[in-house]
Design a protein around this nucleic acid. Structure first.
Lengths: 193, 193, 193, 193
DNA sequence: CATGAATGAGAGTTCATTCAT
DNA sequence: GATGAATGAACTCTCATTCAT
């Protein structure tokens, strides 16, 4: 597969991403992707065998980018509270964005692939989030910004809440006010006023 | 509708519930339901037009039952901490049970029906949960069991965490230990030692 | 499946037989059969899952009919030579008929299903033929019509020759004269002039 | 066509032969051949337009080689019985060999090309066989080895039997014992004890 | 009311064949 | 000559939905 096909492959991934963001995972057929990409039925099969494979590849790509962002923040010279605030602001933005998100597609995908070890991706992402937050909280305690008796529990709490908000946003809806209130609740639980 | 019809309708709902619990929502076809119920294809259409409608009806039934249970607990003569512990234990049980749960079906259903006002069901359930927990926490504060500066935030926190755990359980898996640790974290944040 | 569907099933088998006779086995698709039968795509699948299954069922039907014919001849009151001549005449007729024969379909089918025990059908048919012919030759010897030192070998010889002629007819062609000459050769080898 | 082209052409033929031997004719696609040969899709089309054409060319090559072998035997200084025995032994070997044989491919090919004059190849091969055997039997009669009233009929008989065995081997299977018994039957019918 | 046969739309997948490079 | 990406036709199979009985 030469240079040209790498371009096309990328084009398929990019276009499919939009399709998945729009329709979730279960509703996306190879035909949908073919039509969105403006290529031929057989052409798609030269690159991918199934929507599963395409989504998985998209997720792998995004995972790399996300990891970069994640660790990027930590290396800043801000205070722990600043970093945490920034992180939560990011999450809030992602949470509230309506159309460009793969959230539903990801959930649907992993509902259908619960047992495979592919799902270690989600687990890893969660565990990584907990670990980073734990470190951050501990750093904040060291600098006297935060008070917390159980940093690991607090970190997990944040991750669960974010996950809960994400799913709520996609099923019964969530308002910016609701998000803000909960994030404020979390910050206030940590910060020493 | 005669008595017999009502029976048959109920039979379809009961059987379909098992099907949805097993296969989620998106994977369930009218054919699946017909086969599980042991009725004729045409027969099913006399009662329901789509899996959507069937699941919705099942959820309405369950909602009534659940409300009963919910308020049932509150009327007990236990302490607030006891009631909260009991409530969380219930939630934990539901969380960890593998096969009899409609969790995935519900999520998949509401992914597909985000915009309709039908989803007010989920919202109502969530809001009701928050309200009950808020009352409970305030009651605990009044009796001196709990300390909490923001009962509403704490209540919402619990609901988000439960939601987050539920989705995590269904996608990347969750262990009993993880649940226990987080529930302990939550209780310790409230209880005055 | 009620009476009506049995009729339809039979109609499919009858029509498919013509299709197989015309196009062999490998060239026949479900689509061909659907079109020949004048039914819907999905309709065919209510009765059969694949061309394999259809052909196999046709062959089973034919096998029963053939068996009847076979044993029917033996029970006649003719001489052994008469019966053998009649049998060979039958075979010749089948051999030379162009369009109504499943020969090619059967060969193609069993090329593709060599290893299964389904092919015991062909083997049984062959073995049965040998046995009947052997009995017939022995009967002829007993009545003084035939002379033969190795009835079993002669019987097998006839079956192999018939098989050889059949395949030759379907691949490089065979003339009535060629068939007659070989059948005469065979008869002359048996009959005491 | 340069030397290199001729080499490539030959490489395609040699490789395709293995493919046909393994999968018959009907199951072989241009794709199969391309993959087996390790050449490009377009590259194959520079030399051949279809599997038909490739197989036909293979058969032409083999025919030349076979003819050489055939006449080679006759020119030996052995007795007629020796030559016939040798010939039958060859045939038996070919008959019983499982994997390297084009038998099925050839049959499938000629099922699909019954009406063209291309099939004169099979006919010529058959007729040549009959003629050689006839000559051989007559030679045996002349030397007093054989007794036979109808050499042409006997020769045709042998060819039909071989054909019948070949097809039986490929469809319902044949054992070495069965082959030996029939070949013995044939020899005993000729030889003067 | 109830049945289940029948329909036809639509998804998936594979390949022969072409053509720009 | 040679490549292999691209196309589109063809086939398989499954269901939602209807309708005569």
């Amino acid at each position: 597969m030469g240079e040209k096909s790498a371009q096309k492959r990328q084009h398929i991934l990019d276009t499919s991403r939009r399709v998945f963001a729009e329709k979730g995972f279960k509703n996306v057929t190879m035909k949908d992707i073919v039509e969105a990409c403006g290529i031929s039925r057989g052409g798609l099969y030269l690159y991918f065998d199934s929507p599963d494979q395409i989504l998985l590849e998209i997720l792998h790509m995004e995972a790399e980018e996300t990891d970069d962002l994640f660790t990027g923040h930590i290396s800043e010279e801000d205070t722990a509270a600043d970093i945490l605030t920034l992180f939560l602001k990011e999450q809030k933005k992602e949470l509230l964005q309506e159309n460009d998100s793969l959230t539903v597609a990801v959930y649907e995908y992993f509902f259908a692939h619960k047992s495979t070890d592919k799902n270690s991706m989600l687990r890893r992402r969660f565990d990584a989030g907990v670990k980073v937050l734990e470190k951050l909280i501990e750093a904040g305690i060291a600098t006297g910004e935060f008070y917390c008796e159980n940093p690991k529990g607090a970190a997990a709490n944040i991750m669960y809440v974010l996950e809960g908000m994400k799913i709520k946003a996609q099923t019964s809806g969530i308002t910016e006010k609701m998000v803000d209130e909960q994030l404020t609740y979390i910050m206030e639980g940590l910060i020493i006023e």
